[in-house]
Design a protein around this nucleic acid. Structure first.
Lengths: 189, 189
DNA sequence: GCACCCATGTCAGCCACTGTCATCACTCTC
DNA sequence: GAGAGTGATGACAGTGGCTGACATGGGTGC
């Protein structure tokens, strides 16, 4: 993390990382599939999401199931807000890393998709709900990371998920909405 | 394409591709940013989406704007269905390529997002609608590519987008839905 | 004490990708 | 029509990400 922050991701060689960690380069590659993977390690998130989706009540709408799962997972981020923001800055500075992050998000979609199918949803609905759930998470996460007011991730999640319901209504322009002043991520990945 | 199909993406070296094309390796890299980019070339899609979004009627709901844009873009794929399916098979066989495809989808989200903001939508709604629109596209595209009945992409799009509206309703299990028999992509990217 | 892992080190090598300079066709201009 | 740009390609050397194969040492169970 220090090296990536100091010199940038590209300019940091694996040899340097290995030296800093006092292991050989070969050993580095025994712990991390590649140079990027350092930033995408534990992913306790997957387990939380899968478990929360499995144990949700049967009667809930698909998106509500996801809403609860995401809410349960939020502490994973909120507990290490500073580290998360620092990591996000490194990723924002490098397209290769953004690509990898997309892949991680895709694996979350996959996890949710599988869990929803096991609840008995048909494949199309399950995949769609999973995709939309993670899409909402990305938006909420982006808002949270950049929120000058430091409101909680859970709040952002709730608002974002609520907003998904309004998307089929006729267009409301900025001037008429109550959150028009919010400044989200300017450039989506 | 031939080489990727015959030997697999990983086993194909840039030197081989260059030789087959009767240019030097260096020239290859003057045309393609990297080895993967060969499969992700023109992207006329971006222009179609942006243009369609700009010119859509003001009164439409955000998701309906996207629905029309995607419908206009569908011929880009349907006109070369065989090539598209072949390409998709190569991508399906390689995680690196799937990563790149995700990046391309993200750039579509970005395009839609920007276009929607220019229509006056607030950032959160715009990003959310863009993400969900592309999510629906991915699902519809997956269904289309794997559809044994060869129904059109436009039909799949329409159905998938319609389904997004039902996601906030309480769970309907497979047995009670009318498209439960559909076989989508088994493993989401 | 011995056998057995398992993590790490060592070494050699492939190949993706890049910087740099030379060459050569093509076009524009006087 | 000769000479000066211009842009695409070739030639070549080098960096660095990543891998396979084998050796070694330090713990653990018997």
């Amino acid at each position: 993390m220090e090296l990536y922050n100091d010199k940038g991701f590209d300019a940091t060689t694996v040899a340097e990382i290995a030296a800093r960690a006092e292991v050989t380069e070969r050993t580095f590659y025994r712990h991390f599939a590649d140079k990027r993977e350092v930033l995408f390690q534990p992913n306790a998130l997957v387990d939380v999401l899968a478990h929360a989706t499995e144990t949700a009540a049967d009667s809930l709408a698909p998106l509500e199931v996801i809403a609860r799962a995401l809410t349960e997972a939020a502490p994973v981020f909120e507990e290490r807000a500073e580290l998360v923001r620092q990591r996000q800055a490194v990723i924002a500075a490098n397209p290769e890393l953004q690509e990898r992050e997309l892949a991680k998000h895709a694996s979350l979609v996959s996890t949710l998709d599988r869990a929803l199918r096991e609840r008995g949803l048909d494949p199309t609905t399950a995949t769609l709900a999973a995709e939309i759930g993670i899409a909402a998470f990305k938006v909420a996460f982006g808002r949270w990371v950049g929120d000058p007011d430091r409101r909680t991730l859970v709040q952002h999640l709730r608002e974002t998920l609520d907003a998904t319901g309004h998307l089929t209504a006729p267009a409301e322009h900025s001037a008429t909405t109550d959150d028009a002043s919010f400044q989200g991520r300017e450039d989506a990945p």
